[in-house]
């Protein structure tokens, strides 16, 4: 089936060989200069003085503290945005109400707010000179310059990712299946777990993967609210900056390479997710034709 389509296309609607190859070459050159070389340079710099120094940079206590903090922050921010993303997508995709496009726009907003501004707004709220600063001080509650502030900034920056991934997907799927399940007497939660979730699980996972990558890598907003206390409130990207400012370039790139590796793992996971989703679709299609 697939090969037949390909041959058909090649007869009527394919480009000459030289056009094809020059387009491929041009695309690869562009990606090479903008993606492959930067990625390559991160690892090249990290390994410039050998593996021993590379590993040393990663097991140094401050680096480990930074990795731990990043994991904790992500572990809190991710589920929050996951639950929100599903709720928002359910309300927006499955129902019609006034002001829907305004709501979508507001959900998208954090995506284009400058990270500098994203940090600043939390300082205006929770800083000692901010709205609730005095009250928080009095009750000895630390928000900014502590883990909660870093979590908040991270949640803000990664706010739209899951919702953005799910809304078009759930819109495309429509509501017929859910309505049928309702007629068959399913309860609300059964409906969600048995009908909706299986349909959106791959999109959901892709959203989570993107959200996760962005959460671990966020620099600008977190930098404003972190306080930079060594071994305590430095995340991985902030630790990279500190090492870089100490002229410790090898260590800086070594720690950065964790994030680059994370990017690669993310990409591999994403490819796997897409592959699984494709397989699922093919399986569904075959079952449909078999019936």
């Amino acid at each position: 089936m697939h090969s037949m389509q390909a041959t058909q296309r090649s007869v009527a609607t394919d480009e000459p060989r030289w056009v094809r190859w020059s387009l491929i070459a041009l695309a690869l050159a562009f990606l090479g200069f903008f993606l492959v070389l930067p990625l390559f340079s991160v690892f090249a710099e990290a390994l410039r003085k050998g593996w021993a120094l590379y590993v040393e940079a990663l097991i140094e206590p401050d680096a480990i503290a930074a990795i731990q903090l990043t994991l904790i922050v992500t572990a809190i921010a991710l589920p929050l945005n996951l639950v929100f993303g599903v709720a928002a997508a359910w309300a927006i995709a499955k129902f019609d109400f006034k002001g829907k496009s305004l709501l979508i726009t507001l959900i998208d907003l954090p995506f284009s707010v400058s990270p500098v501004v994203a940090g600043l707004i939390y300082v205006l709220l929770f800083g000692a000179q901010g709205w609730w600063g005095a009250w928080l001080m009095e009750h000895d509650i630390k928000i900014i310059f502590a883990v909660p502030g870093i979590v908040l900034a991270t949640v803000f920056v990664t706010f739209p990712f899951v919702a953005r991934e799910l809304i078009p997907l759930m819109e495309a799927q429509g509501t017929e299946e859910e309505q049928a399940a309702m007629v068959l007497g399913a309860s609300g939660w059964q409906l969600f777990w048995k009908v909706t979730l299986p349909n959106i699980k791959w999109g959901l996972l892709y959203g989570v993967i993107l959200c996760n990558a962005r959460a671990m890598g966020e620099f600008g907003a977190v930098s404003v609210v972190s306080g930079h206390i060594r071994g305590m409130t430095n995340t991985i990207p902030l630790h990279v900056e500190i090492l870089y400012n100490e002229y410790n370039f090898v260590a800086a790139f070594a720690v950065a390479s964790i994030l680059a590796l994370l990017a690669l793992v993310t990409l591999a996971a994403k490819s796997w997710v897409e592959w699984q989703a494709d397989r699922q679709r093919a399986l569904d299609a075959r079952m449909a034709t078999d019936q």
Binding site: F126, F145, G227, G231, M232
Partner: peptide, 20 residues
């Protein structure tokens, strides 16, 4: 003794904004 380092103006601002 905990250390915090960064650009000087930014560090002073953090203390003003409540860094202890």
């Amino acid at each position: 003794i905990q250390q915090s380092h960064g650009g000087s103006g930014k560090q002073a601002r953090s203390v003003i904004d409540g860094l202890q």
